[in-house]
Design a protein around this nucleic acid. Structure first.
Ligand code: MN
Ligand code: MN
Ligand code: ZN
Ligand code: ZN
Lengths: 147, 147
DNA sequence: ATGTTAATTGAAAATGATTATCATTACCAA
DNA sequence: TTGGTAATGATAATCATTTTCAATTAACAT
């Protein structure tokens, strides 16, 4: 199963970085790797407590911090707040987020180099990095809106 | 002077939306319209208190809320936090932010329509909106880094 | 100009999210 | 198995933002 594999990869990354494998981290990583939508820390906490009602919110925050420093998760930015997180796959990619249900997919290949060059010329800045996110409606929410 | 004009425009917009023109709003709008960099509410508060030490932080938050609902300011998103705000000019534009000193300029013409179409086809989503920000070094910070 | 009235203000308190502290628990290398 | 130490969760602390409320003041009609 692909999710199991991704979760194992994350746990291995944590281990390589000096962390121990604990049941709390197992649960948190499992939830994050299989999530189809961006989650707030509190959402993730609620999901994890279904598997272990004893698990603490603080551990969720601490694990998120570690996963972020390993580059395995990313923050999702929205006009109404930027506290959600989503897994990051390998390589350079961007997110497309359904504004209705929150479902999130990623894509690659934005071909923005020409834009960077033009803006650099116009402004005198050097362009080192960029952030791009798309918002829209997923197929299911489009169908629901139709009828 | 251009900044005076922009500040007046903002005050007029506030007035049209039913707000009264007060000295607190005058000061806050003046600081926001002439700022060359994104500001956090606390930064803005500190700047405004130089002109009126009596002005309250709550009024800063309230005025920011009104200006945002009028579409005159926008949130600036960064990997280390998304609490800064910057004025928004007319029309569709994006920000380029100096990661060293915070100086911020805007640009237009991202020509992303082809990308939207491709991603919509690939994912089945409809693409309704997008967020794009560039990060780099402004001319001054580039010069400083050079030597 | 003056009074009326409702919007606005700032101090203080409340809230909500995140972080720090610390005694206890449990992973894991030896 | 065991010892050292990282990790945990309860609790408290912190920080940004929002709410409350009595006093103030801008806008408007006299
Ligand atoms: Mn890209
Ligand atoms: Mn655009
Ligand atoms: Zn953001
Ligand atoms: Zn700079």
């Amino acid at each position: 199963m692909q999710n199991q594999t991704l979760a194992s990869q994350w746990l291995l990354s944590l281990q390589k970085s000096g962390c121990r494998i604990t049941s709390a981290r197992n649960i948190i990583v499992e939830e994050l790797t299989c999530a189809q939508r961006a989650l707030e820390p509190a959402d993730l906490y609620a999901l994890c407590r279904k598997k272990d009602p004893h698990l603490g919110l603080v551990t969720v925050y601490r694990t998120l911090e570690q996963l972020e420093s390993l580059g395995l998760i990313q923050r999702v930015h929205r006009s109404d707040g930027c506290h959600m997180i989503m897994r990051k796959n390998d390589g350079h990619e961007h997110l497309l987020i359904c504004t209705s249900c929150g479902k999130t997919v990623s894509f690659q290949g934005d071909h923005l180099e020409l834009l960077f060059d033009r803006v650099a010329l116009e402004t005198g800045f050097s362009v080192e990095d960029h952030m791009l996110q798309l918002f829209g409606l997923c197929p299911e929410c489009r169908a629901n809106a139709q009828e």
